[in-house]
Nucleic acid binder design. Sequence first.
DNA 1: CACCAGGCCGTGC
DNA 2: GCACGGCATGGT
Length: 246
Amino acid sequence: MVENLRETLLGGQCFSWTEEEPGLFTAVLNEKVYRIRSLEDARADEYLRAYFDLDYDYEKAMREISEKDEILKQAVSKIGMLRMLKQDHFIATISFILSQNNNIKRIKGLYDRFSRTFGHEVEPGYFSFPTKDELKGVCADDYRALGCGFRAPFLVDAVDKADMLDSLEKMDFDSAMEALQTIKGIGPKVASCILIFSYQKREGFPMDVWMKKVMAEYYPGKDSSYFAPYQALSQQYLFSWIRSMA
DNA sequence: CACCAGGCCGTGC
DNA sequence: GCACGGCATGGT
């Protein structure tokens, strides 16, 4: 099946990548500038191998998701191979707090301003997203000045509590959901995005405004358990699919 | 002018 | 427990 790197990188599960020219994706991660055109460029790099979840059997998952029903079959066939990225915990947490009641383009803009304003330059013109230490001492008004709006105090709280993030790795899904939601501005949707796209907890099923439409129209009366054991990947297919029709 | 975007918080019942 | 209004910002 055709790898859909563009949808994986630009489709809303992360906000780090820019398509600098057609087919060339660039991001600052792991203290370097990565420039890739395909996953072949990622295989040699240890960080990217984990980041792109290369050890997971996506062919098998896609096959089984397609067999679930006709809608999913259509979605998988149209979208191609989607991966679930394993992002840095802190970056994902801040990113998805920024995502609430927001759109992907504007989230990306905020992410870039975070990097330029609070992060550090790893190559001329290329800035890393700030670490939690770089955001210690940043106040709500500083975040508002970037355009974060009502999310500003949530970001302060997240930085305060960021030390707990690594400990979620070994928690089960429900405990990790609960722990994340002690941070202001993190509810069930944002928490499940963080757990999927940074912790690879594949039972997450984020319900944003797009998914509410999908569920109401195509899966009335059903919930995430219908998609087990591929809740997260099925959700991502339905999300990309419904957005591709808009 | 309205309404929307990978929602959540605070309040009221 | 659930329903509802409010919320910063920028785009359509």
